[in-house]
Design a protein around this nucleic acid. Structure first.
Length: 587
DNA sequence: CTAGGGTTAG
């Protein structure tokens, strides 16, 4: 008699379980299923409640999840772990911490599964204090040697920019899984420490460990930061020799890598070889074309993407296309695409899209229109980037009035950013207002702000050389200067007239020195010419934007030496060839 | 009704 009752009970619960599953990650059906549980008397079943909780997290309704959780009497560790995992997975990090806290005050003990999820939440919040506290819980609980927990800890410290702590944990691991290596490498990459990422990857190779596709995603991303094509090709060869299948994620990372290393055709080859493509991959390719000034190709791809592949562009795609239009001067097309965001896709243009429009109009010399565009934005939309785009355009077209206004807005918004002062000073210098140049300079000194140092790197025979203005640490620096002097002289004979940079060049006392006559890109170009044979393309990466004078000089250098020179600046590529630049002097 | 974890793209 007793047995059949139990059986009935089980059957009923099974039916309810099916009902909850059927409801899926949708709030209303879940609530109905929950109501049904109450009616049929199954509301105490922890398993059913657990399923309900994880599904309501997946449904995105943390409010309902929270209410549901608070109604549970005596949640068990299975319920806690599932809930903590689901809430961290769907980004409800603060709630994860809340549930974890409740777990600590319950009879259930956290385990390795609990910790991995809570660290994920801490990483998401980049909350170093809480994560460190959690780390101490791990020690007390005895899970500190669990490889999964360790990897989660490394990921947490890395995402909180505490790379040295992450590295310490990594170094102390008795045996490291590939995931641990990947976590550490991506941690370096995402914190801008590309060289450290590469060093660790090389170490992995030396130890004979087999990298997987995730390793190469981070490695190729680090490589894009460095911008070295030689290195990029080596990474690509390494993928092939390791027999790694290039999935969409890795493919996208490679498209980005080759674009940012200055080789769009290789990027396109990767793109064409991919069996599956999604919006992210297409956007990467579009943006690659954009940064090289291939506006038409970017637009073609944009239209092809939806026409032939039925992919729907998202807001990042629009940033890529619009900035491609801006770089290539495709104003009419850019306007049309911007309008289509609302009209065709029902999307509301965001801040980044406004910045693209101001940049596009401004670069084209339509400064009044760009200004009008800014004026129509709401106060919350007037982010620094909008004014930066305006100011850049004013500098390009030497428009004093708009430029000064833009610079003043910027200084109000970001009083600590030295580049705004430099640009304002530039504006005054163009207008011959040396008294104002002087006073901007004084404000900078008062506020303790220093001009950002520009540096350029170039690869010669598999070695990277870094140059910055005034840095005399290079052993052949005197030869380089002598060579460069001669080169500039030849350029002058060919018609080059140097454009003096009036801006802030006397900010520092030492800047009057001999060693400060040349910007870093000129030094890198000279060095590259000295060290490579005729026919070799020089590839230089610069951290800031290239200045007008260097741009003009390199055009002449490409003629007098008959060389192709590629320079990646902060925002785009310049290919100098036979006296002209691929940006058509439009940057 | 008790699985499963940590890393990766624009």
């Amino acid at each position: 008699m007793e047995g059949s009752k139990e059986r009935e009970d089980k059957q009923r619960k099974s039916a309810e379980y099916e009902a909850v599953i059927r409801a899926g990650p949708h709030v209303r059906p879940l609530q109905q299923a929950h109501a049904h549980l109450i009616v049929t008397g199954c509301y105490r079943s922890k398993a059913l409640l657990t399923k309900l909780l994880t599904l309501s997290c997946a449904a995105g309704s943390i409010a309902y999840t929270r209410r549901l959780f608070l109604s549970v009497t005596g949640p068990d560790s299975f319920l806690f772990n599932s809930l903590i995992k689901a809430s961290s997975q769907y980004g409800f990090s603060l709630d994860t911490l809340f549930f974890y806290n409740r777990m600590l005050f319950s009879p259930s003990k956290p385990c390795s599964y609990t910790f991995t999820s809570v660290f994920k939440a801490c990483a998401h919040l980049s909350n170093l204090r809480l994560g460190t506290l959690l780390h101490s819980h791990v020690f007390v609980s005895g899970y500190s040697s669990n490889p999964f927990v360790q990897a989660a800890i490394i990921a947490f410290y890395a995402k909180s920019s505490a790379l040295s702590i992450a590295r310490k944990v990594f170094d102390k691991m008795p045996q490291r899984s590939v995931v641990a290596w990947n976590t550490m490498i991506s941690g370096y990459d995402q914190n801008g420490l590309a060289n450290e990422a590469m060093t660790l990857f090389r170490k992995m190779n030396e130890l004979g460990l087999r990298p997987d596709s995730a390793t190469f995603v981070s490695v190729s991303s680090a490589c894009s930061q460095i911008g070295s094509l030689e290195l990029g090709c080596w990474v690509h060869d390494s993928i092939v020799s390791n027999g790694i299948r290039v999935n969409v994620i890795l493919g996208t990372s490679l498209i980005n890598m080759f674009s940012r290393c200055g080789d769009v055709s290789r990027a396109r080859a990767v793109f064409d070889s991919m069996s599956e493509g999604n919006v992210i991959a297409w956007t990467a390719m579009i943006s690659g074309y954009g940064m090289h000034g291939y506006g038409v190709e970017a637009m073609e791809l944009f239209y092809k993407m939806k026409k032939e592949n039925g992919l729907v562009p998202n807001s990042v795609t629009f940033v890529a296309v619009l900035s491609a239009c801006a770089h290539a001067g495709l104003i009419r097309e850019g306007r049309q695409i911007f309008a289509s965001m609302r009209e065709e896709y029902g999307m509301v243009p965001g801040l980044e899209h406004h910045v693209c429009m101001v940049d596009m109009l401004g670069k084209a010399g339509l400064l009044t229109e760009a200004y009008q565009f800014i004026k129509e934005l709401s106060p919350e939309e007037l982010v620094p980037a909008v004014w930066t785009a305006m100011l850049g355009a004013c500098k390009m077209h030497k428009n004093f009035d708009f430029g000064v206004e833009a610079a003043q807005h910027l200084i109000t918004l970001e009083p600590e950013n030295p580049s705004h002062y430099v640009l304002l000073s530039n504006m005054y210098a163009f207008a011959g207002r040396m008294d104002r140049v002087e006073s901007v300079r004084n404000v900078m000194i008062q506020r303790g702000l220093k001009k950002q140092v520009g540096y350029s790197s170039i690869d010669v025979n598999n070695k990277t050389y870094l140059f910055s203005m005034g840095d005399k640490s290079h052993p052949e620096i005197n030869e380089i200067y002598r060579y460069l002097d001669g080169l500039i002289w030849r350029c002058k004979e060919a018609g080059y007239a140097s454009i003096p940079e009036l801006a802030m060049h006397e900010l520092e006392e030492e800047e009057r020195e001999y060693a400060l006559r040349y910007h870093s890109e000129k030094l890198a170009v000279a060095f590259g010419l000295m060290k490579t044979s005729h026919g070799t393309t020089l590839r230089i990466v610069k951290n800031l934007r290239i200045c007008e004078d260097c741009h003009s000089a390199v055009k002449f250098i490409s003629v007098v030496t008959n060389r192709e020179i590629v320079i990646r600046d902060k925002l785009r590529f310049h290919l100098f060839k036979e006296g002209s630049c691929s940006c058509l002097d439009y940057w």
